[in-house]
Design a binder for these strands. Structure first.
Lengths: 142, 142
DNA sequence: AAACACCTTCGAGTGCACTTTAAGTCAAGT
DNA sequence: ACTTGACTTAAAGTGCACTCGAAGGTGTTT
């Protein structure tokens, strides 16, 4: 054991994980996180919870929706038998995120070219003010 | 000249650029695009407009908001004197997009690790079911 | 003649993820 | 005593970017 006995009330916990107390209660309502209560019915959280919320934020950060997150949590609660499905959810999320990045990169490429054009690094003699776009059609798979 | 004399009505144009007619009218209301009208007051668009909408979609694709897009359009209408500001807007958008990608990559790294963990490629003997997170704290600058 | 595509204004609806308020209670700290 | 922070439920508000519908019109095509 490290120091897993530390307790945090919602306000402190909110600061630790970078969410508002509103959001934490909302996530609890949604079933994404759970909290224990002291004898006064006041929520408290532990370092475990910090890690769990951290993980949730990573999943959200890759674009996973609340609904999928709920599903994931439900599966997790059902034990190891659901690992294949959970793995599959993560893989799908990963694929989507990678596709998003690829698309973003493509759009960025156009932006960079336009900035270069503003900087005079690219041929200015073309009449059409947006014809750099033509040049970049080759990257355009959409 | 290539073949810049082709005219498209809104329905056809919508299909060409991948937006709905609703959205095209909405963008026009917002001042992002303009259309010419025939003698019956029916909108028509040209190949120029396809390129312009294409550019808009690239900017949106990098995360630029409608409001900023409006500002950009306004500046563009004011002529070359506003090029520095426009360039700066693009640079800012670029920076933001690059930051988004970096963050996404970081979250993805966690996801990939978790998938590996599910696949048994990573040590399974750790008791804490989410402790892979600890391992990745090093990437966590947020 | 009916269907279809276009036009107008303008307000309401959608989806997502919060965010806030209201209204009342409880308890610890300064 | 008062402020601060916690608690409850339920509902309304926010922001963004559409998306749609009503209601009435014109014009072209089948």
């Amino acid at each position: 054991m490290v120091e897993t006995d530390r307790h945090y009330r919602i306000g402190e916990f909110a600061k630790l994980v970078g969410l508002s107390t509103y959001t934490l209660r909302y996530y609890e309502d949604q079933g994404l996180i759970k909290s224990r209560r002291d004898d006064k019915d006041v929520r408290y959280y532990t370092d475990q919870d910090i890690r769990w919320v951290g993980f949730i934020l990573h999943l959200k950060g890759t674009g996973m929706r609340l609904n999928d997150l709920k599903r994931y949590v439900t599966l997790r609660a059902q034990g190891d038998a659901t690992i294949p499905e959970r793995r599959e959810m993560l893989r799908k999320t990963q694929d989507d995120a990678e596709a998003d990045i690829a698309e973003l990169q493509m759009h960025l490429q156009v932006l960079r070219h336009k900035i270069d054009w503003y900087d005079g690094k690219v041929d200015h003699t073309i009449a059409d003010s947006e014809s750099f776009h033509d040049y970049l059609q080759q990257f355009n798979q959409e």
